[in-house]
Design a protein around this nucleic acid. Structure first.
Lengths: 254, 254
DNA sequence: CGCCTGGTTGAGAATCATCAACATCTGTGG
DNA sequence: CCACAGATGTTGATGATTCTCAACCAGGCG
């Protein structure tokens, strides 16, 4: 299935050839991220057949809500999505931010309903991958099966990184880590490693990192004063990436 | 493959029929936990054929180490295993405790090497499930494939629980949650909900919950004084489960 | 223009970490 | 079987990081 895109700004998906208005897994430039395993061409076509591309989500719209029946996982094509769950006493806990090329919704598999809600932080486009179709395809294509096992495993290790961050690191370390993580994910998409716009609010950042808004704000101001980062509300420029990595205690990337 | 067991104390695996010295997935009383999906009898036999049962691990022995090549996932049969990873600056971060019926090692799939180390907290027995065999089997048995997707998804939601705990909850809430979690997992195995022995040290608990040993010790003492829990070094009796749940902010179970 | 959300900054309070001393348990060897 | 050493756990005093409360500012949208 190759559908023609709407006229919205699907930044990533179309940069590869701005005049090409058809999107498919075969020509999506996120392929290398979304599908790190080299699928055979034929296999990509089969995947393409089950992927559904809907209209873009507006900022604030939900992709799905906690305890909705689980039907699909989603690949983010453009924009940014946050995943969050409600705690026992009704607070929100942000469990992840998802950028183009990343897959969201896999937490819904175990109980056949989503364990978290997913909400667009800005206008976003996603590819919907119905899970029962994906399961069928996986039994036919071992490569696809393996790929999904790997994606889920990846999600586990990402969560474990966050657990470590929350358990062991100070406010400054957590925030430096997040900035570096976003920078690295930008780099993967061939975007600037040092200059980007944060799609989420300070509140979301604090919520994700287990900090209050005030602490986030203070630390960002401090980084700004120290010349580590240029903070212009949501526009961020990393001025001293090594200095930040130093603070974040990162050996490699995160 | 049905092998005869060694003479070690495989508490759980053999209680179902203490005279039956053969262990297989078909007669293992943990089946309902380890394999929540009702596999057909034939399917269980096929699973059984790929499962390897080695000698028990002694306390302190490693099942695998971080960055070892990934080969297998493991079902805990008896005892208890802790998973941990090393932070950038060489500290230990405990990422999970695994009890009989639970599966460990799935974080190794994404990079073909384990993302954490697994160490026995006491004498433990495990069933080794070679992952490439499991992948093959999964392509043949959709039920098996689905089951493993679910197991991995389960691991993700468990991690997200921990993230929330670390991000939002006080020392008392974290410790109450852990006690309730262990209690619930005991109940699943038809063991006492209120009385058990903690297989891990206070240090491990603190490490897992993002607290220092001292804080763990103090909170446990406080719970003890308040009559919520009877703490006898590692022997724990939950005297007021509802009170604990109240502290832990749990609606249902955790 | 003014309201409302989101963000910043400050002062004081609280939780938990740190440092330190001591107690208890485990297991090993005499 | 006891004694001792090292590891593990407990308790106390002090201090630091982060939260809370509060005021204020900025920007976007009706």
């Amino acid at each position: 299935m190759v559908i023609s895109s709407t006229s919205t700004q699907l930044e990533d998906a179309q940069h590869s050839c701005p005049h090409n208005k058809t999107i498919s897994c075969g020509n999506c430039r996120l392929g290398a991220i979304c599908l790190p395993l080299a699928l055979e061409d034929d296999d990509v076509v089969k995947l393409d057949e089950i992927v559904q591309r809907g209209r873009p989500l507006q900022k604030g719209e939900h992709l799905y809500r906690e305890s909705d029946p689980f039907t699909s996982v989603y690949a983010v094509r453009s924009g940014a999505i946050k995943a969050y769950r409600l705690t026992g006493d009704g607070q929100e806990q942000v469990t992840g931010f998802y950028f183009p090329g990343e897959i969201i919704g896999m937490d819904g598999i175990s109980k056949d309903k989503y364990a978290s809600s997913a909400k667009a932080l800005e206008t976003s486009a996603v590819c919907e991958i119905p899970f029962n179709r994906l399961e069928e395809l996986s039994t036919q294509l071992p490569t696809m099966q393996r790929h999904f096992f790997q994606l889920m495993s990846q999600e586990i290790t990402t969560d474990q990184h966050l657990i470590t961050l929350l358990s062991k690191n100070s406010a400054e370390e957590r925030i430096a880590s997040l900035l570096i993580s976003i920078s690295a994910r930008n780099a993967r998409r061939k975007l600037s490693k040092t200059s980007f716009r944060l799609p989420m609010s300070r509140t979301d950042i604090g919520n994700y990192l287990g900090l209050t808004v005030e602490t986030v704000s203070r630390v960002m101001s401090r980084f700004n004063k120290q010349g580590l980062v240029d903070v212009e509300s949501k526009e961020i420029t990393l001025l001293d990436l090594d200095g930040l990595k130093d603070i974040a205690n990162v050996k490699t990337d995160f």
